[in-house]
Design a protein around this nucleic acid. Structure first.
Length: 397
DNA sequence: TCCCCAATAT
DNA sequence: AATATTGGGG
């Protein structure tokens, strides 16, 4: 039989538990074999290349799986259940997840898996181990969830782009990604979300562009006596806050390798507040890697060859995706200012640029220096030309 | 069978 | 919240 229990010393207060150290105990009739898996040891530092999917299963489900094993080969000591959950909870509160799980097709067993497949059955060929055992009874078992880490997502996006957006179908994406423990369904599900996100993104950008246009029309209409549009209702409606629209949302909100924004809008003002990033890095630290031995089918080939190990989760390591973006090369004040201009016409007029300048100056979050010394229209025009706005026709009025 | 999408479950 | 599953249609 097999039991999963927390590895705790006699001293219940022992700190090593904080990192999620578990003992997987395999007990034979003729004797007993202990294998201690200390998760703290299994996570080894890795700055980049977070490619491995993190497969997780609810602790409750694990227990169900085991207790559902009809052949009696596996079971989980009922008494340990609470402790396991408690450990999990503690780990979560420390920002670390003890991920354990399995996939049914191509049996990649993660975490305690190695131990499982070392079971008396030597159950390699079959669907094997606890999963198989529970499969017969309850047909509809949930699969382990894949943690789409930024790096994994990046691979996904890369594959999609390599194929071309219209030829990107799950099976081919899967091929290109070369991560065997993902299933076509995993990809399909992610792809569905990806497309949907893309759609939203484009919609938002279109909307932003239209807002910018309206603002300009409105500004132009109120500014110039000539150009005033009598049919334009003088209603002031503010567009949605850019800051809101750009808050990172897991992998989806990220520029990542994906597409550059269609409309140039910088997330400005930059970091909402320090506690935001703090929160995010705590979040990020949850995403530790499941311990996987080298050469498991879960390791993408190049990395397996390079002998990569799983990353370290001791301490708070912000997930790459939540790390603040490295500072861009400094812009001159002039560039800074023109980068704030929202011009959606290919060949903006002096008037519209003037209006846009007015808009920028009206932004409450504009850095003080820029507000104190607004650049002249001419200098803005010059900067725009440098930036590639080809021709600026003279004002018509 | 595969793919897509929306709805729904976990 | 993010992912999986399901079900209907192409």
């Amino acid at each position: 039989m097999l039991a999963v229990e927390p590895s705790r010393g006699s001293n219940g207060d022992e700190r090593e538990g904080a990192m999620g150290s578990l003992a997987v105990v395999e007990d034979f009739v003729d004797g007993s074999l202990f294998e201690d898996i200390s998760f703290g040891d299994l996570f080894v530092g890795m700055d980049d290349g977070d490619v491995l999917p993190d497969l997780e299963l609810d602790p409750a489900e694990i227990l169900v799986e085991f207790s559902g094993a009809a052949d009696g080969l596996y079971r989980v000591d009922g008494a340990t259940q609470d402790v396991v959950e408690e450990t999990e909870e503690r780990n979560a509160s420390h920002g670390v997840e003890v991920a354990s799980g399995m996939v049914e097709e191509d049996p990649i067993l993660v975490t305690a898996t190695e131990v499982w497949s070392a079971s008396p059955e030597g159950d390699r060929g079959r669907k094997s181990s606890a999963a198989a055992a529970s499969m017969k009874g309850s047909q509809g078992k949930r699969k382990a969830k894949v943690d789409w880490t930024p790096e994994l997502h990046r691979r996904f996006v890369q594959a999609v782009e390599q194929l071309g957006i219209d030829k990107a179908v799950p099976s081919r994406i899967l091929e290109l990604m070369g991560i065997d423990c993902l299933t076509r369904h995993n990809i399909a599900s992610h792809l569905q979300k990806y497309r949907s996100h893309r759609k939203n993104l484009h919609a938002r950008q279109a909307e932003a562009a239209s807002w910018s246009q309206r603002r300009q029309m409105y500004a132009a209409g109120t500014g110039a006596k000539r150009g005033a549009n009598p049919w334009l209702a003088p209603t002031i409606v503010l567009p949605p806050s850019p800051a809101q629209a750009f808050r990172p949302l897991h992998v989806w909100g990220h520029p990542a390798a994906a597409e550059p924004p269609l409309v140039h809008m910088r997330p400005f003002p930059p970091p909402p507040d320090p506690s935001y990033w703090h929160h995010q890095s705590q979040r990020g630290s949850r995403e530790g890697w499941v311990a996987m031995t080298q050469g498991t089918p879960c390791l993408p080939q190049p990395m397996a060859a390079a002998g990569f190990a799983a990353p370290h989760v001791a301490g708070i390591v912000p997930h790459p995706m939540y790390r603040p973006v490295p500072p861009a090369p400094p812009m001159s004040k002039q560039q800074e200012f023109t980068s704030q201009l929202q011009l959606d016409a290919a060949h903006p007029t002096k008037e519209s640029i003037d209006a846009a300048i007015g808009d920028v100056l009206a932004k409450p979050w504009l850095p003080l220096p820029l507000r104190l010394k607004p650049p002249s229209l001419d200098s803005v025009l010059a900067e725009l030309q440098k930036q590639g706005v080809s021709k600026v026709p003279p004002a018509s009025g």
